[in-house]
């Protein structure tokens, strides 16, 4: 991209509210949603069910579909692998027992269900959580958010809503409101 083209692109309208208290953060989220403002992310040092409830209203994560698909695939694989390989040697039939023997293959089916289900859950988690996330915006890379602070971050807020957003963040109890991405963050206890 040439410098001329870069200059033509409007800079992202970043707004970041940092909270020291969970109830203030929740009030901020509630007021933003009540005002119909969207496009923000919440960063927190731990998963709190109140935050998830406020943002997603109890909708389950799609990771469960990955889990189910993986488990069904594993179960099928766990049956097919021993059945097909044993069927290649039907002449080896000790004691008149069946070549495809469900009680003995059930163990393999069980283990493969768990293994494939687990690996698919891992894949689903990585895809939906957007990992690895080395390229996340700098405003989200605030070491205070893994310590004891919470954040509401707009990476590119609607310019017409800027005043409304900063007002909501301030009145809900944000201890710091910053715009732009030039903040230098201190590393706690470093």
């Amino acid at each position: 991209m040439s410098s001329h083209a870069a200059a033509a692109v409007a800079p992202a309208n970043r707004i970041k509210g940092t909270y020291a208290h969970l109830d203030c953060l929740l009030a901020g989220i509630e007021r933003l949603r009540a005002a119909g403002i969207q496009g923000f992310q919440v960063v927190s040092p731990l998963p709190r069910h109140e935050i998830e409830e406020a943002l997603y209203g109890g909708a389950p994560s799609p990771v469960r579909w990955w889990t189910l698909t993986g488990a069904i695939t594993g179960f099928t694989f766990g049956f097919l692998l021993p059945s097909l390989t044993h069927s290649q040697w039907p002449m080896i039939n000790p004691g008149g027992k069946p070549v495809v023997s469900l009680p003995t293959f059930a163990i393999i089916m069980f283990e493969c269900t768990i293994l494939f289900g687990c690996l698919a859950t891992l894949a689903g988690f990585i895809v939906h959580a957007g990992l690895p996330s080395f390229m996340l915006d700098k405003s989200l890379q605030d070491p205070r958010y893994s310590d004891d602070q919470f954040g509401i971050v707009f990476l590119n807020a609607n310019v017409t809503q800027t005043d409304a957003i900063t007002s909501i963040l301030a009145t809900s109890g944000a201890v710091e409101i910053t715009t732009g991405d030039d903040t230098v963050y201190e590393v706690p206890n470093a």
Partner: peptide, 24 residues
Amino acid sequence: ALGWRGTNRQWRHFMAAYGFFAAF
């Protein structure tokens, strides 16, 4: 840490996946 930042999106799927791992 795979660049983990503790965003709401990350925590949401983390908790779901963690529950499934425990269940397995």
